[in-house]
């Protein structure tokens, strides 16, 4: 029969196993502070809980979540909402009901053809009152497009290409992948502890801190550092497939990128140019995947695009 001290030592060893598995789960991403944070929590909380409770917590930490891929759609939803709210601190929304209604129709018409048509809170789209050429996809499906980006689009098909690209970032959960593993390790441990007892104020404060850090990681990637070139190309390729499924001409992605390249030549280091690989290189990479190179202009689409977006491109 084990003594109390031996049992406690076993528990701490179990904790070390959890730390080890979390480290390997996040290889390449893990931060030392995340690991020490777990150790802190173990020693800090050990005082007030029985051993049975701690066994439960440690098992929970092993069981529930380890990396960004384990974030639930509900958690993704709350992260996405905070990401969008933070983007609005820098970019003012464009309060034009007609244009936003059209953008939402276009976005939903594309989303139903995506590999992930349903997210926890659904897809929603909004224009931003900015001349910068840019678009953002907050996790969970809140998609923001600047007036400057709309100006880059000559017709509905090209705007569809922009929106399809952003939907594919949501589909692939690229935003969530920007969250540093250390924050997630810390947050998941708190969540596991929550399952053993009710959330206390200390835990809520700690969780909110990790949440803010996670949101900051995503916003920094969206607005400053950008996704990896691999992720951008993955979103481009998926967007071409999405356009094809929805019936839009795939060529619209190429023409949109070419037009963007021309405009960004004059705006190097700003907005989209800062966070994306060069539009020309993206267009060249996509040429191999395009099955139908016809542009298929359509008068109905041209008319409704013009009616909805003319006030947007004409403003300012």
């Amino acid at each position: 029969m084990k003594t109390k001290r031996t049992r406690r030592a076993s528990l701490m060893m179990a904790g070390a196993v959890v730390v080890g598995s979390l480290w390997w789960a996040g290889a390449g991403w893990a931060r030392p502070e995340g690991l020490s944070g777990l150790g802190d929590l173990l020693s800090r909380k050990n005082k007030g809980l029985s051993e049975d409770r701690w066994k439960s917590i440690l098992r929970g930490a092993q069981a529930v979540q380890k990396t960004w891929q384990d974030l639930t759609p509900e958690q993704e939803y709350y992260i996405g909402r905070a990401v969008a709210a933070q983007v609005f601190q820098t970019y003012r929304p464009l309060d034009q009901a007609g244009a936003n209604a059209y953008l939402n129709l276009l976005g939903q018409a594309l989303a139903v053809f995506s590999a992930r048509p349903e997210t926890f809170g659904g897809y929603h789209f909004l224009l931003l009152d900015s001349d910068e050429i840019n678009a953002f996809a907050a996790p969970g499906g809140l998609i923001l497009v600047t007036r400057g980006m709309v100006r880059c689009c000559e017709n509905e098909d090209e705007l569809a290409a922009v929106v399809a690209h952003e939907i594919c970032h949501v589909e692939k959960k690229h935003g969530l992948s920007a969250i540093k593993q250390g924050r997630l390790t810390e947050a998941f441990t708190i969540i596991a502890a929550e399952s053993a007892k009710q959330t206390g104020n200390d835990q809520l404060a700690a969780l909110t801190r990790e949440f803010e850090g996670s949101v900051g990681d995503v916003v920094k990637t969206l607005t400053t550092s950008g996704y990896s070139q691999g992720q951008e190309r993955e979103a481009d390729t998926a967007a071409v497939r999405l356009l094809r499924r929805a019936g839009y001409p795939e060529q619209a992605m190429i023409t949109m990128l070419q037009r963007m390249d021309e405009r960004l030549t004059h705006a190097r280091g700003l907005g989209f140019a800062k966070t994306h690989p060069s539009a020309r290189s993206r267009a060249n990479a996509l040429l191999k995947t395009i099955e139908d190179t016809r542009s298929k202009a359509n008068p109905v689409r041209a008319k409704r695009f013009s009616a909805a977006m003319q006030p947007v491109v004409a403003s300012r």
Partner: peptide
Amino acid sequence: LAGKGFNAQVEAKL
């Protein structure tokens, strides 16, 4: 787990 972790409670606090 539903409602655990990054949830409405955290958003309400912010």
